[in-house]
Computed example of a mutant assay.
Amino acid sequence: MQVPPVFIDMSLEDQAQELRGRKFLKRSPQRGIEDDLHKIIGVCEACFKEGQESEVEMVLNDIVSIMVLIPLERSENIILAFCEKLTKAQGSKLGSVCLRALWLLFQSLDDRSPMRYPVYYHLIQIAKQTDSVHLVYQDIDHLKQQFANCPPSSDQLQKLYRLLHEVLVKSNQSEQAALVMIELLGTYTDKNASHAREDAIRCIVSALADPKTFLLDPLLSLKPVLFLEGELIHDLLNIFVSENLSAYLKFYKEHKEFVTTQGLNHEQNMQKMRLLSFMQLAESNPEISFDIIERELQMKPDEVESFIIEVLKTKLVRARMDQAARKVYVSSTMHRTFGRAQWQQLRDLLHSWRGNLSSVQEGMKSITAAQLELLNQS
């Protein structure tokens, strides 16, 4: 979100005096600039009720232009008060105005300022209320760049990631939400990983429920997830990582209430496990008959073709379906797990490509040399 900077050719005192003079702000006796700003911020909700959108934005931008010029040691409480005021004002139709004003404040603060974190946290809160998180959050890498010169503490990051995850889920950005949750678990160390139980469970449930997340084995190496070993949620994760549909159905039959209480949908789990099971079949079988699919995925004959079409739409498997022969011919598939064997396979493939490219290069040299020789002879 791009918000133009605000420049006012007036002293701070004159700006505060001008703000106090607006019709929707109560006047107060002349005081120090910080006291003036506290008074102004304390009653600025009046402009949400009486002012036009453009007028409200002008007032908020004026306040920002003053705050960013006050030394940090004197402006912390003012900035926090401003953030709280805008966050609480979201019952109005001017949510986008508040979002822009706070984004302007965030962008105007020095990138080494510790106040960037609380401002950004309140930005995400407003984005949640206005369903506009896409305006202030791109991805984890961009977020880290925003705080590269003044990194938040681990506790602050955990608090921010939890809020971000909640907002992204609410905005139906499940893939981004899963990445944020994985990043959250990565903030825990061996010393405090055992205290991350709730975050770890939330991360697993979020990944299992996400219809676009299929590579799940990286979760098993996260320290907070390791502490869940032996619990039902860890067993369920292992089924989605490496087991087949039959294993899931057995687990569900024995722990139906547990699956339901985690907020997971059994039918969605079945569909995901069928996709994962088919991927596992495709890894070692370049040719799969409809009969095998019916048996292994526990499907009716008239469900197979539509299921294969859904598989191909995900691009997890590249294949060709032959309805007449009742077979699927697999050309490539994404691996459910990516361990040592897969790295070795990738290494061998890259070496093969390099050898082929060298052969092509030598062949082109020979052709070029022959063409030059013909030219010289002519």
Rank of each mutant, 00 (worst) to 15 (best):
Q15A: 10
Q15Y: 08
G32V: 06
Q371W: 05
I308T: 03
A178L: 03
D111H: 09
S171L: 09
R27T: 11
V119E: 06
I309V: 12
Q107V: 11
T187L: 02
K49V: 03
A370D: 13
P218W: 01
Q377M: 11
K85H: 11
Y329K: 09
S11H: 10
M321E: 05
I367W: 06
L104W: 04
L350W: 00
V43T: 13
I204T: 01
Q173M: 12
M279H: 06
G186P: 01
R27Q: 13
Q129R: 14
D62A: 14
P151H: 05
N285W: 01
H234E: 07
H38C: 08
D111G: 01
L179D: 13
L349Q: 04
Q377E: 15
E294M: 09
R116S: 00
V6G: 02
S359D: 13
K313R: 10
Q158K: 06
Y120D: 04
S75I: 01
P211S: 10
D322M: 03
A127D: 05
S289Q: 01
L220F: 10
L226A: 09
L184Q: 00
T87P: 09
F240I: 10
G186H: 05
F106Y: 05
L245M: 07
Q271H: 12
S113T: 02
M115N: 06
V136Q: 03
K144I: 10
R112G: 12
V56K: 05
R320T: 15
A81D: 15
Y121M: 09
E231W: 02
P286M: 03
V317I: 06
C98F: 13
S331M: 08
L143E: 09
V225H: 00
Y117D: 04
S352M: 06
L12F: 11
A325P: 07
Y252G: 06
M273V: 04
E287Q: 14
L168T: 04
F227Y: 11
K315F: 03
A178R: 02
N269A: 15
M279W: 05
Q2P: 01
V328R: 03
R22H: 13
G363T: 14
E13L: 13
S358E: 14
P114F: 08
R100C: 11
I204V: 09
D217V: 01
L245N: 06
K88F: 09
Q342E: 15
K88Q: 13
T87Y: 12
L109F: 02
V304C: 02
Q262G: 04
E18C: 07
N238P: 06
E305Q: 12
R197P: 00
L99T: 08
W353F: 01
M273N: 07
K85M: 15
L25M: 11
D199M: 00
L226G: 03
E303M: 12
A341F: 10
M364F: 10
L374I: 07
L104A: 14
T337R: 12
Q138H: 08
D302P: 00
I41W: 04
Y120P: 03
Q173R: 15
G186Q: 10
E303F: 07
Q158A: 02
D36Y: 15
S132Y: 11
V241W: 06
C203Y: 00
R340C: 07
L357F: 03
A209I: 05
L372V: 02
